[in-house]
Computed example of a mutant assay.
Amino acid sequence: MEVNNMTANSSLISKEQQLASIRKSVNLVMPKKEAEAFLVDTLKMASTLPKLRAKYTDVPSSKIPKLKVKSRQIREHTGDEQPTGTGSIDTPQVPYSVRKVYWDEWIKDDDVWYNNTARGDDVETKTIDLVQGQFSVDIQDLLFNGDADAKLADGTTPDPFLSILDGFVKKMKASTIKTALGAAEPTIDDFVNHVLLLDEKYLNMTDLTWIMNRRTYQKLVALVQKRPTTLGDVTLVNGKLTEIAGYPIEVVQSLQSGFVALTPLSNLVPVFTRDLRYKRTADGATAAIKDSTYHILFAYADAVVLELEAVAWMSGDKL
């Protein structure tokens, strides 16, 4: 009996010792280098954001260079030329202005303990991983789907999440290069023909990519599988659709319906300042009754589309 009590007491002490690390209140303003590293690690947990070239800055609003592609700038040299240049290298810029965002949650001590110790993980490290993982999902959703004009179902109240900022989708919709499918079901030919809308200089970019949601992707897979023969305009690998008209596909988690775009991934730039704060507390009656710690993460972000001429997008009720 005493042995069992000793074992139980040892387990309780061990549990309390490990949970003590996350019960310590933290109000951390991260140094710039550490803040950028934290953001890089956070974005790695998202599905699509790691593939984009994020910009980290110390300035909340400024401009970043546009995506520009020019060709046929070489001329014959005769010796009589004037050093005027060709104007092939310019620095047009696109403005950005970050918005302050935050993610917060109560995390139960027992959930942390049982989920992490079962795998032999460090409690504090895995709790930070959880915070980063949840933040990464939301920030990707916001950066793609954000719309400052978004409203709730009543048509008047601003959507508390989507209205924070204008995301990539809304900004890409400003491009005049568009295929409107209306109420028609999409076909493979619609996608193949859509490619021809882009200027050839963009078609030659190595990161030109289809951006779509999971529903549209699954429809296209079904269409390809029903074909009697492969026509060479799509590529199936082990039942997965990897390319359409020679360009890879990026399925963006939680991307809104009715939208597909063909654009270089380098055309989409998430912007973050190195102003990052993480706060955690287990103090007070609320934390005690919840047997939980409260976590909150503050960051500053914006979504920038560098070149509208490099965006060809599709709209349709069935996308």
Rank of each mutant, 00 (worst) to 15 (best):
V3Q: 12
N5H: 12
N5F: 10
M6I: 09
T7S: 11
L12N: 14
I13T: 15
Q17D: 14
R23F: 06
N27L: 00
L28A: 01
P31Y: 08
K33G: 08
K33E: 13
E34K: 06
A37H: 05
A37M: 02
L39H: 02
D41H: 09
L43N: 07
K44H: 07
M45R: 15
M45W: 02
A46W: 00
S47P: 10
L52V: 08
K55Y: 12
D58Y: 08
K66Q: 09
I74C: 13
H77A: 15
E81Q: 15
G85A: 14
T86N: 13
G87W: 13
D90F: 08
T91I: 13
Y96A: 09
D104T: 06
W106V: 11
K108A: 14
D109L: 15
N116R: 15
T117W: 10
A118S: 11
G120L: 12
T127I: 07
I128K: 08
Q132F: 01
Q132A: 11
Q134M: 11
Q134I: 11
S136H: 05
V137N: 08
V137I: 12
Q140P: 03
D147T: 07
T156Y: 11
P160S: 13
L162H: 01
L162D: 03
S163C: 08
L165R: 09
G167D: 14
F168W: 10
F168C: 12
K170T: 12
K170R: 10
K170P: 04
K171A: 08
L181Y: 03
T187P: 03
I188E: 15
N193A: 05
H194N: 07
H194G: 05
L196R: 13
L197N: 12
L197K: 14
L198H: 04
D199T: 10
K201L: 10
Y202I: 13
I211R: 08
R214V: 04
R215I: 06
R215K: 07
T216C: 06
V221F: 05
V221L: 05
L223S: 04
L223N: 01
V224Q: 05
V224N: 04
R227V: 00
P228A: 00
N238V: 05
G239Q: 01
K240G: 05
I244D: 02
A245V: 07
I249L: 02
V251N: 10
Q253K: 05
G258M: 11
V260Q: 03
A261L: 03
T263L: 02
L268P: 01
V271T: 09
V271P: 00
K279N: 00
T281I: 09
A282G: 12
A282D: 09
G284K: 03
A287E: 00
D291N: 15
T293G: 13
H295P: 01
L297H: 02
A299Y: 00
D302S: 01
A303Q: 04
A303N: 09
V304C: 10
V304Y: 03
A312G: 04
S315P: 05
G316V: 01
L319M: 01
